[in-house]
Design a protein around this nucleic acid. Structure first.
Lengths: 250, 250
DNA sequence: TCAAAAACGATCAAAAACATTCAAATATGT
DNA sequence: ACATATTTGAATGTTTTTGATCGTTTTTGA
């Protein structure tokens, strides 16, 4: 049996059974255990399957990616500083938009008032907002599995019914020329619309995002008040020519 | 049996039975008690289940927990029977609406296909739907704190963009004359609109709702296929004059 | 309340699965 | 045909998983 034949057979097994034992593969291919192991190792490197003790498993978010409670505590602390400053900008009676994402989520705990109205596209924010007794609106649309953000036509339509005093946005890239960028074009659409509906936009970005460019752009640097945790003097001045910048320090 | 196979089996048991004994798992997996204990410990650490003396329990997300104060396991079992039958009505390729509520939530675990599109107004449903890899749309609007249901103008507007093959609704009252009723007028609006956008409506009601009348009406008996857990012969015939009734028995 | 029964966590040795190495078999290129 | 590269399977020692045991804690029922 050829190598590629074995590969096909293995992938077929995994696809149909979700999980397959090495012994079963040995039996079905007639190859030795060593060979199967080598095959599995290679298929794992090529990101086709996930090896587990005793066999291999389908590589999918089915059971694996469900829980994401892990955070690097360093970057979390940075995010908290940024979030805290951003939250201080919220005034009683404001109608604000809070973008989906982990940095913006941190804001919720620091919000200085509960007499505000919050609109968000981040499913994960809702629980904490309600817990604090804040009037919460969620925009509609398709739910993006990995990030639990609302995207798509429904999200855009649904958001057009609102106007915001302030918006707090996350971003994956901040660049003087290319502006604010994010990897997902659908999320970019939502962000772009949110910005256009808002009087005063705040962009929350930790230092790892500065100078980066992701795939989809959703705004120019001057569209938002930029909040970062740390930044060299010279870099700050570049951005300060374009917009207001606040370095919260770490 | 591989570790991951056991994990899948355990999670499956917990999801369908809410609670599972160690002995049952030993029996079903063929593994030793020690191994099952280790598995449960690990699954608890990964936040998939909650260990209890003698077994393990479903770990509900806080969003779900909030709205489900405490349910007698009897009525939960009834709900499951109803949900199971309702789920069997879903066919591959369907676009369905699933109403907010605990009974409809039970359906998700029993859905026979994942090649469907689900629209819901129930925030608590989203997590489980995505976990099963189902394409999920959430309608927009205000989030109702106690039930985590989407209501209000935004919800209505946002739903109008969809049409459904089937809808699965919960209700607080079922009455021959007054039809289906619920205490909250805002939720009633949403339900009413959902029904009007759907070809085939299923109403899920346990026996405690039969003959009851709540404040706000959202449909006549004949608007939906009625699914109940148990019902006296004579009562059944009353409703059967008006619509199709399925008694799933307990 | 108390004692028996059940469930528990910790420990340890056996078993299974593992990566690595090496030589034989096979394929490839000149 | 020859030398070289690749693939294969067996043998090696190592790591992970497993099931049994034991003393402790929790639950149960009188």
């Amino acid at each position: 049996m050829l190598t590629d034949e074995r590969f096909a057979l293995i992938l077929d097994c995994v696809k149909h059974q979700d999980i397959v034992k090495i012994q079963e593969l040995v039996e079905r291919t007639g190859a030795s255990e060593s060979t199967i192991r080598r095959d599995l190792t290679e298929l794992e490197n090529k990101k086709f399957i996930k090896r587990v003790h005793g066999g291999a498993r389908l590589l999918k978010g089915k059971l694996q990616e469900a829980s994401v409670p892990e955070k690097s505590s360093k970057s979390l602390h940075e995010k908290k500083k940024i979030a805290q400053f951003a939250a201080s900008k919220v005034e009683k009676g404001d109608c604000i938009f809070i973008d989906a994402g982990t940095t913006t989520q941190q804001m919720i705990g620091y919000l200085p008032h509960t007499e505000i109205v919050v609109v968000t596209n981040g499913l994960m924010h809702v629980e904490e907002l309600l817990e604090r007794g804040i009037k919460t609106y969620l925009i509609g649309g398709a739910v993006k599995p990995r990030t639990n953000a609302m995207v798509g036509r429904g999200a855009l339509e649904s958001m057009k019914a609102y106007r915001f005093d302030k918006a707090f946005m996350g971003t994956n890239g901040v660049h003087p020329e290319f502006g604010y960028t994010t990897p997902d074009p659908e999320e970019a659409q939502v962000k772009e619309l949110a910005i256009s509906l808002t009087r005063e936009v705040f962009m929350l970005a930790d230092d790892s995002k500065i100078g980066e460019i992701a795939f989809a752009s959703f705004g120019k640097i001057q569209d938002a008040f930029l909040i970062v945790n740390e930044l060299e003097e010279e870099t700050v001045s570049v951005y300060q020519k374009l917009t207001t910048v606040k370095v919260v320090g770490s």
